[in-house]
Nucleic acid binder design. Sequence first.
DNA 1: CTAGAACCTCAAGCTAACTTGAGGTCAAGC
DNA 2: GCTTGACCTCAAGTTAGCTTGAGGTTCTAG
Lengths: 155, 155
Amino acid sequence: MPQAPLLSIGELSRRTGMSVSAIRFYEARGLVTAIRSSGNQRRFLRADIRRLSFVLIAQRLGLTLAEVSAELATLPQKRAPTRQDWQKMSARIRGALQQRIGMLERTRDLLDGCIGCGCLSLDRCALYNPGDRAARAGTGPRFLLGDRAKDFEEG
Amino acid sequence: MPQAPLLSIGELSRRTGMSVSAIRFYEARGLVTAIRSSGNQRRFLRADIRRLSFVLIAQRLGLTLAEVSAELATLPQKRAPTRQDWQKMSARIRGALQQRIGMLERTRDLLDGCIGCGCLSLDRCALYNPGDRAARAGTGPRFLLGDRAKDFEEG
DNA sequence: CTAGAACCTCAAGCTAACTTGAGGTCAAGC
DNA sequence: GCTTGACCTCAAGTTAGCTTGAGGTTCTAG
């Protein structure tokens, strides 16, 4: 039974649970590619359901779209990702997650050491200056405990 | 030796390490208050060094400015915060931090369970649907693993 | 053949947390 | 008297990750 091989954007939206506008946005960012129908409408491969699912999952794991994009780029183009591909990515992501956990734990421990001291002295407070150069100069929102990207750049 | 009791914005900037523009911004947000000199320049109390230091530390601990603002509001106005005040806040913040760590750990464990499965099936993947309603509808940036604010609203 | 759903393309808006810039004031030093 | 530096206000820009809206086309059902 030859099921329609291509999906409209609406169908893809239904299958992934993400909004139509989000899919268009992801396409503009190069996270998915669409071919066009005769009437200029987007048509997606069924494999894109998985691709977008990965985007959702990876975001939940804390990757930015840029990072997700980089991960997707490691997948060989034009063939479905194998279990091995997925495992390699998972390992990388796990490493980053673990680093983030470690950082939060260290912060929590510093806080524990500080409760009761009440000093709030900029010179002496360990919380104030946990030896980080990740001060992220420039503009844009500040993220949880410093630069998100760092975890992945080096991990 | 009667030291000048009031600080200019430049001095406050030097003492806290934050930029002048940031201080003005915080003032607009109500995190600090300034009185004005005859020539319409801002003058701050020395106590504001601590107040702003707290802002810096709390941000590093992962609070948004709105949350910092809320915490500062729990401090009795017009008297220096006591050790007790600081301890109560610390405890609240620690709780939120701990929740965030727990969430990341659970996510990591789910990922561990998933490595090797490679399914990426939206229906079955535990990673995809970790029972959260924290999907944060609406606009604005999405934060690490869901709604930051939630941790504090209920904690 | 026509209504309505679904699709299209821009452009602009939203939040967070600030920065940057334009245009102007004020005080001190030479 | 004039420059220099610190200060002032207000508007607009920045990043991330989308959404919303305006204005127009295409597909499907009756």
